[in-house]
Nucleic acid binder design. Structure first.
Length: 573
DNA sequence: GCCGTTTTCGGCCCGACTGTTTTCAGTCG
């Protein structure tokens, strides 16, 4: 069984961490991390590319040496350099890197001087006061280590962007009360619409001598103030989230926004490009020598480099800088392009609202259509519909459509894909619906081959339209089930089936990398909310953001079509 | 280890903050 791209990327990341601790050339370490990132964002599997004899060195950041290593990994499942590094350096040291304040240099020093290999060793040494005696260490660092040990033991916590949004909104409202506040913007992975964020980076500009820092550290949700400076302060909220506030001058706001939005990989590319052009970029502006060329507007930072504006969702170091240079950035799908939602539940199963409430909410969003797709009978916990109850709902929808103006309800179902690949309701009723959303809700633990075949068999049913939440993952809660997505996408394209980008903040399934893969393979997609309430329809922006992170354009998203054209696609010609 | 319209060798993004120092290293973002 060949390793997946993300497994291969993990090997290079692990190698990079170990070499970093060993004090290896930092640029070599960066080259491995860089390669890992490139590998993660590839639309096709390396196994496939190697089998086809493709020249991997044509990928940016992959040279002769790493290409050979990848081939070895694909063929043997092992990365010899990693095995050697593991023999030299205990892998438990990698846990130590997760402690805030401990980087490769200090981990190496702790290992070398005190033979500290594990978090337990670290705690013992810190408690007995040995760490403060090491050169370069002191009582403060020792105390810091003890403080952060607990956090490291439970692993890095990342918050759903959705959770972060309500935290950010409340905090911004608090900051707005400070006199002299001008602009406020959340930067970082939040602005790039990553599905999870580790912390919040807030930028503000102020008029005159505003007490915004005082107000920030005095926020009622603050558990502790981590640092406090003139331009930057950090707090930890009671829920554990870290928030950084940076005060920047108006004339630097655009440059600061660009800089703190990241990603790190994107910024390195941008700055490297700037250096080649004899420019310098920092968070204060773009400079040629002493002369400042831009800084107030983010757009100008890119323009100075001869680049088209790159939206935050694309700033992941996945080729967007090169694309901007060549003026071939995608024209990303936008929320306003969406003409309807194709996955929603009502109180007939596990939703909360009735048909009409859902319809009016969809109309208020400016939609042309909304598909009602309640669960099928197999999902007993949701009181899934059998044929009789489904027929009753269909009649109710027909009757409602007679009365409704400006919105059309589509008769649909979220039908379960059973373990043998058949659908949970007979074709005799499926054929009378406008569309069928098909999904896996149980037996997640089948082998990759069996799970894939289960879905492929289901797609053989001529009424199969959309594969809902294709991997079944729940962020931070449930891992995706094993499936061969490229194969499923190829099969879907061939048969005129579609894949869903589920917009639920804890699903976002397909994820951004899958979206890139779908873009490359050209399979049709829909963005749907899977709403269980009328307000749930507003989550569409999360699905659209995910699509944008995957470089997707309007043409590939089927629910941007007017209803008449949508119906043609759903008929699976 | 990667990369090249200044270079196949010699570069490789940049600044704030902290702690341990007394001019700087490490870490972080």
């Amino acid at each position: 069984m060949a390793l997946s791209n993300s497994e291969i990327a993990d090997l290079f990341d692990e190698l990079a961490d170990l070499l970093d601790i060993e004090g290896e050339n930092p640029y070599k370490v960066r080259a491995y991390r860089n390669a890992a990132r490139i590998i993660r964002s590839l639309p096709r599997s390396l196994a496939e590319m190697v089998a086809a004899g493709e020249d991997l060195t044509r990928l940016p950041g992959i040279g002769e040496r790493i290409a050979r290593k990848i081939e070895t990994v694909v063929k043997t499942g092992k990365l010899p350099q990693l095995e050697q590094a593991l023999a030299r350096t205990p892998p438990t040291l990698l846990q130590l890197l997760r402690i805030e304040g401990l980087g490769p240099k200090r981990v190496k020093a702790l290992f070398g001087a005190l033979d500290i290999r594990t978090l337990e060793d670290l705690e013992r040494a810190a408690r007995s006061g040995k760490i403060r005696q090491l050169p370069g260490f002191g009582p403060k660092i020792e105390a810091l280590i003890l403080k952060h040990l607990d956090q490291a033991l439970e692993g890095e916590r990342r918050y759903l962007r959705f959770e972060a949004e309500s935290i950010a909104t409340a905090l911004i409202a608090h900051l707005r009360q400070a006199p002299g506040i001008d602009r406020i913007e959340v930067a970082g992975s939040y602005r790039r619409w990553r599905e999870t964020v580790g912390d919040l980076d807030i930028l503000v500009t102020v008029q005159g001598d505003s007490p915004v820092m005082e107000r920030f550290v005095a926020y009622e949700g603050v558990a502790e103030v981590l640092s406090r400076g003139g331009t930057r302060s950090s707090i930890r909220l009671r829920n554990g989230m870290q928030v950084d506030l940076r005060v920047v001058a108006s004339e630097s706001f655009g440059a600061a926004l660009q800089y703190f939005t990241g990603s790190k990989a994107h910024n390195i590319e941008i700055r490297t490009l700037a250096v080649k052009q004899g420019l310098k970029i920092n968070e204060y502006g773009v400079f040629r020598g002493e002369k400042r060329l831009a800084g107030e507007a983010e757009r100008d930072v890119y323009a100075c480099l001869g680049l088209a504006y790159i939206v935050p969702e694309l700033r992941e170091g996945r080729g967007e800088v090169e694309a901007a240079l060549e003026n071939r950035l995608p024209r990303l799908v936008e929320l306003a392009d969406i003409r309807g939602d194709l996955h929603a539940h009502t109180q007939d199963t596990d939703g909360r609202d009735d048909l009409e409430t859902m319809a009016q909410a969809a109309k208020a969003l400016g939609y042309e259509y909304l598909a009602i797709t309640d669960h099928s009978r197999r999902v007993t916990v949701a009181r899934g519909l059998d044929e009789k109850r489904l027929r009753a709902q269909m009649e109710a929808i027909d009757a409602l459509n007679e009365r409704l103006e400006g919105i059309t309800l589509l008769k649909g179902i979220e039908v379960d894909i059973l373990e043998d690949g058949t659908l949970d309701l007979p074709d005799t009723v499926l054929k009378d619906l406008d569309l069928r959303v098909c999904s896996v809700h149980y037996r997640f633990n089948l082998s990759k081959r069996k799970q894939t075949e289960r879905i492929l068999r289901a797609m053989d049913n001529p009424y199969f339209n959309i594969l809902a939440h294709p991997t079944g993952r729940l962020i931070n809660k449930r891992r995706p089930y094993a499936i061969d997505l490229p194969r499923i996408m190829a099969a879907a394209k061939e048969r005129g089936c579609l894949l869903e980008i589920n917009a639920q903040p804890e699903r976002l399934d397909l994820n951004d990398e899958h979206c890139l893969m779908a873009r490359d393979l050209g399979v049709g997609l829909v963005v749907s909310t899977d709403a269980h309430t009328a307000t749930g329809l507003q989550l569409m922006r999360y699905g659209v953001a995910q699509a944008r992170r995957g470089w997707l354009e309007k043409a590939q998203i089927v629910n941007t079509l007017p209803l008449a054209q949508l119906r043609k696609v759903l008929a699976r010609p």
